[in-house]
C-alpha cells in the first residue's frame, strides 16, 4: 500500500557489540532489501546470534546504528522490535515449556477482547487466539498436536516448528531465523525452507542463519560471512559453492575482490580459533 521504499528495509551501520572482553561484533554494516533472503554464516562464536539479538531488540549495540526503512531505531526491548515489524526465531527458540502452543505463539502480544469492558480489564480473547493459530498452522501446512498442547510435551522438531510459526504468522517486514532447521527432520526442514521462499514472495526481508551450506545455497539471494565478529564476505549467491563458503568462514580462503572491507589479520586458517562459544 505504501509507495515502494527507497531505503533498504533493514540497514546496520558499523554496529559493534562486546561481552566483557569478547568483541562479539566489530563494526558490521549490512543492508537487506524487501523480498531478499540473506544467508548469514560463520563459524561457532563468529557473532551471528549476537547480530540477531541486536536486530531483534534483545540487546542494544555498543556502537553503530540500526535502521528500519531508513529510520534509525533504538529498541528498548524485544517488543519494540516486534512492533517495528521484526520477528525472530531465536537459536534457543524462546518458548515457555509450561505454556501451551497458542499461549506461546501470542506470548507478549496477546489478543484482548475488543469491547470496552474487555479492553479496560485486559481480558484475553482466548477463542480468537486459538482460532487464529489453528487456521495459521493449516495455512502453513504444519501438522502439530492440538494447539492447546503444552510445549513441554512437544518434540524438539515440533518446538522448532512452533517457534517458526510464531514468527511467520505475523505480518512482519523482517524475519530473523537463527538456525531454524538445526533440529528438524527432512520433511520439517522442507517446510521451513518453503516458508522462507513464501516470505520472500510476500516481500519480507529474511536473514537466515545456518551451518548447513546446502540449505543456504538453496534459498538465499545473498551470503554474508562473519568471522571473529567481522564481516569478511558479502556477495550474491550466484557461482558460490559450499566448500568456498566454508573456506571463507574458516579463513582458509583469502577474501576475494568482492569482500567489503580490508582483510583482518587473522592467524591460523581452518582451525577453530573462535570456538569459545562451544
Amino acid at each position: 500500500m505504501t509507495a515502494p521504499a527507497r531505503h533498504p528495509v533493514l540497514e546496520l551501520r558499523s554496529v559493534s557489540k562486546s561481552y566483557g572482553p569478547v568483541r562479539a561484533l566489530r563494526g558490521v554494516s549490512l543492508k537487506v532489501e524487501a523480498g531478499e533472503v540473506v544467508g548469514l554464516i560463520g563459524d561457532n562464536g563468529a557473532g551471528k546470534s549476537t547480530l540477531i539479538s541486536l536486530v531483534s531488540g534483545s540487546a542494544p549495540p555498543d556502537r553503530g546504528e540500526i535502521l528500519v526503512e531508513g529510520a534509525e531505531k533504538t529498541f528498548e526491548s524485544a517488543l519494540d522490535a516486534r512492533d517495528a515489524g521484526i520477528e525472530t526465531v531465536f537459536q534457543a527458540l524462546a518458548l515457555a515449556p509450561t505454556l501451551n502452543i497458542v499461549e506461546n505463539v501470542y506470548l507478549g502480544r496477546e489478543l484482548l477482547r475488543r469491547d470496552p469492558i474487555g479492553r479496560s480489564l485486559k481480558w484475553l480473547d482466548k477463542g480468537a487466539m486459538r482460532r487464529e493459530v489453528a487456521s495459521g498452522f493449516q495455512r502453513l501446512g504444519l501438522t502439530l498436536p492440538a494447539v492447546t498442547t503444552k510445549v513441554a510435551a512437544l518434540s524438539g522438531g515440533q518446538r522448532q516448528a512452533v517457534a517458526i510459526a510464531r514468527a511467520v504468522l505475523w505480518d512482519s517486514r523482517i524475519v530473523l531465523l537463527d538456525e531454524p532447521t538445526a533440529a528438524l527432520g527432512v520433511k520439517q526442514t522442507e517446510i521451513v525452507l518453503g516458508f522462507i521462499q513464501r516470505l520472500k514472495q510476500h516481500g519480507v526481508a529474511v536473514i537466515f542463519v545456518s551451518h548447513n551450506m546446502q540449505q543456504v545455497l538453496r534459498v538465499v539471494d545473498r551470503v554474508i560471512v562473519l568471522r571473529l565478529g567481522r564481516k569478511v564476505f558479502d556477495g550474491a549467491r550466484a557461482n558460490l559453492t559450499g566448500p568456498q563458503l566454508v573456506g571463507l568462514m574458516t579463513g582458509a580462503l583469502a577474501e576475494e575482490a568482492s569482500v567489503a572491507r580490508a582483510a583482518p589479520a587473522v592467524p591460523g586458517p581452518s582451525s577453530k580459533e573462535c570456538g569459545n562459544a562451544v
Binding site: 534483545s58 526491548s77 524485544a78 534457543a92 515449556p97 506470548l107 480489564l121 485486559k122 481480558w123
Partner: peptide
C-alpha cells in the same frame, strides 16, 4: 486466568530468558 499477566508470570517462572527475549 484472563489477562496476559498470568501467562507472563508462568513464562517468567518457567523460562526467564525466553520471556526476556520476547520483551516480557
Amino acid at each position: 486466568y484472563q489477562t496476559p499477566y498470568g501467562r507472563h508470570m508462568a513464562a517468567i517462572g518457567g523460562a526467564r530468558e525466553a520471556a526476556r527475549s520476547l520483551g516480557i
